[in-house]
Amino acid sequence: MTVIDNTHQRLLPVPAATVGPLLDRLGRPGDVLWPSPAWPPARLDRPVGVGATGGHGAIRYHVTAHRPGRLVEFTFDPRTGLTGTHTFDLLDHGDSCVLRHRLVATPTAWMRALWPAVVGPCHDAVLEHLLDNAEIAVTGTVTDPYRYPWRARLAARLESVHVSAVAVPADALALRSALPQPDLADAFAARIPPGATTDAQAWADAIFRNPPPAVTALLRLRNILVAPFGIARGDRTAFDTIIRTDRELLLGTDAGHLDFRASILVDAGDDDITVTLSTHAVARNRSGRVYLALIRLFHPPVVKAMLRRAAASRCLAPHPTTTP
Rank of each mutant, 00 (worst) to 15 (best):
M1A: 13
V3E: 15
I4D: 13
D5L: 02
T7W: 00
R10K: 14
R10H: 01
R10Q: 11
L12K: 11
L12H: 03
V19W: 11
V19E: 05
P21R: 09
G27A: 09
S36E: 08
A38P: 01
A42S: 03
R43Q: 11
L44Q: 08
L44K: 11
G54T: 00
G57I: 02
A65H: 14
L71H: 12
V72F: 10
V72H: 05
R79S: 15
T80P: 11
L82R: 01
L82V: 03
T83K: 10
G84Y: 07
G84N: 13
T87I: 11
C97G: 10
L99P: 02
R100A: 14
A105I: 09
T106E: 15
T106W: 12
M111A: 15
R112G: 12
A113P: 00
L114C: 04
L114D: 04
G120S: 05
G120M: 06
H123G: 10
D124W: 00
L130Y: 12
D132W: 11
A137S: 15
A137R: 01
V138A: 12
G140T: 02
T141G: 06
Y148M: 11
Y148N: 01
P149G: 13
L154F: 09
L158N: 10
L158H: 14
S160I: 08
S160T: 08
V161S: 01
A165R: 15
V166C: 14
R176W: 02
S177G: 06
P182R: 13
F188W: 11
I192W: 06
A196I: 05
T197F: 07
D199V: 07
A202C: 03
W203H: 10
D205Q: 14
D205T: 15
R209Y: 00
P211Q: 05
P213S: 14
T216P: 01
L218G: 00
I224F: 08
D235N: 14
D235A: 01
R247G: 05
F260S: 08
S263D: 10
S263I: 01
S263Q: 03
I264A: 02
I264H: 05
V266Q: 07
D271M: 03
T274F: 07
T276A: 10
S278V: 06
S278I: 07
A281V: 07
R284T: 00
R289K: 13
L292V: 02
L294H: 03
R296K: 13
L297F: 07
F298H: 01
F298N: 01
F298E: 05
P300S: 03
P300E: 05
P301Y: 12
M306D: 08
R309L: 02
A310Y: 09
A311D: 13
L316W: 06
P320N: 08
T321E: 11
